[in-house]
Amino acid sequence: MQAFTTLTGIAAPLPKANVDTDQIIPARFLKSISRSGFGKNLFANFRYREDGSENPDFVLNQEPYRKAEILIAFENFGCGSSREHAPWALLDFGIRCVIAPDFADIFHNNSFKNGVLPVKLPREVCEQLMEDARMGGNARLTVDLEREVVVRPNGEEIPFKIDPLRRHLLLNGLDDIGQTMQHAPAIDAFEAKRAAAQPWLAGAAGTTPAGA
């Protein structure tokens, strides 16, 4: 996973609540067994018209937002399906940070696992950042994960908070499988205790599905 330390870039305003993962990447594009190449289908139902041409009204089809690296949205961003293609599509387009008042839980988890930083800030702050974003290319935002601040174009610093474990993994570009493997003895011990108390859960031993 690509580490996330600090990012300065163009922010695209998407002033909508309940942006669901079917909007971020429609199900008909979930055909690839790799994680890359989804950027062209990001927000496909809004970015393209029925004939396949670009919809000039959609923010990511406008300059300078074609090069946006930050997205500002409203409540419940990423609701719906658990598809990890949502952060993959954002990442593949070039967006590495989403700022919103809150996020749906699964999308929030998935983002961290892929080097996309979801930043929760109060609604009124998101509205200010939305205004900054509307200023386009002259108004870059900085998102500094090390210091946990968003820096507005006017220099104002807005603090945010990220879970310490997630921050550590993201700053260093680590996934957590390696970390967890260090706890293998604890997992073994847990399994042994559990098998003694609930033998019927020790795998599927003794049970064969009828007719299979």
């Binding site: 699964i106 998935n110 499988i177 967890t180 493997m181």
Partner: peptide, 20 residues
């Protein structure tokens, strides 16, 4: 509860999951 595919990989590898 539902998880994403990176978390699926974590559960496959360790039969555990980090949660708050």
């Amino acid at each position: 509860f539902g998880i994403g595919s990176t978390e699926v990989a974590h559960v496959l590898a360790t039969q555990t999951l980090w949660q708050r």
